[in-house]
């Protein structure tokens, strides 16, 4: 099967049917390994056991941005190449990205309370991630508001690309502004500043959550393709009745 074959929704459905069980199993195994390593990781000398929140907060924060990046590529696919699955991919990714962003915000808040003394601070990092979350909700509302998927696709694609401007702001907010949020400690010049005892569980959890995203995204894309088939058959049925 070549890449171009995946443009065919039927072939895509056949592929997902084959690989989804394997992806789900790999995700479950890696999540269990990651959770075990997170539980066994030592306490931080300053943060104590609250450092364990990092193992879910950071992967969710990375994925919050990564999913919007995936949606931006899909938006280009919709606007430039008119790929039949591009809008399906973007629409299916949005609720999953919103869930990851929600978890990044809430777990960050729960980590912030004991470490910073506050659940929330209107600093550049926290505020830009909150804006990302609101943009996810806006996109989901847009797709729900417009019944015809092809009409919604172009508007959603433009909004997604405009929203992508927020990604570098989120990433570099801790460098550009004086923020309560700490600067990057993994993806930084000079390599990670984390000790291996924290870095390894963090990377395992990041890969596990990434696999979770791929699994859920493929399953949600499959659902969206079926939803569009249902819609076209319902329209066919309605036109037969009116004829």
């Amino acid at each position: 099967m070549t890449l171009i074959d995946l443009a065919n929704p039927t072939r895509f459905l056949q592929l997902t049917a084959r690989i989804l069980p394997w992806l789900a199993a790999a995700t479950a195994i890696l999540l269990l390994v990651g959770l075990y390593q997170a539980a066994m990781a030592p306490d931080d000398y300053q943060q104590g056991a609250t450092v364990k929140i990092m193992f879910i907060h950071v992967p969710n924060a990375w994925l919050a941005m990564f999913v919007w990046g995936v949606m931006s590529l899909a938006a280009l696919g919709t606007l430039v190449w008119r790929h039949p699955l591009a809008d399906v991919a973007a629409k299916a990714a949005a609720p999953i990205g919103a869930a990851f962003t929600f978890l990044a915000l809430v777990t960050g808040s729960l980590w912030g309370r004991p470490m910073w003394g506050t659940y929330w601070e209107w600093d550049a990092r926290l505020t830009s991630v909150l804006i990302l979350f609101l943009m996810y909700l806006g996109l989901i509302a847009l797709w729900r508001a417009v019944e015809d998927p092809s009409r919604a696709a172009r508007a959603a694609a433009v909004l997604t690309l405009v929203g992508a401007l927020n990604l570098p702001i989120i990433k570099f907010s801790v460098d550009w502004w004086n923020t309560l949020h700490q600067p990057a400690s993994v993806l930084r010049m000079g390599g990670p500043s984390l000790d291996r005892s924290f870095l390894i569980p963090l990377l395992v959890m990041a890969v596990a959550f990434s696999l979770l995203f791929v699994t859920l995204h493929l399953a949600a894309m499959r659902n969206e393709i079926l939803r569009r088939r249902v819609r076209s058959l319902q329209m066919m049925q309605a036109s037969r009745r009116s004829a």
């Binding site: 306490d43 104590g48 056991a49 609250t50 929140i53 907060h57 978890l103 777990t107 729960l110 004991p114």
Partner: peptide, 15 residues
């Protein structure tokens, strides 16, 4: 999990 256990447990439970 020490004195901040509730924050850690709530985070994992919510996720």
């Amino acid at each position: 999990l020490g004195p901040h256990a509730v924050f850690v447990v709530t985070s994992y439970a919510l996720a």
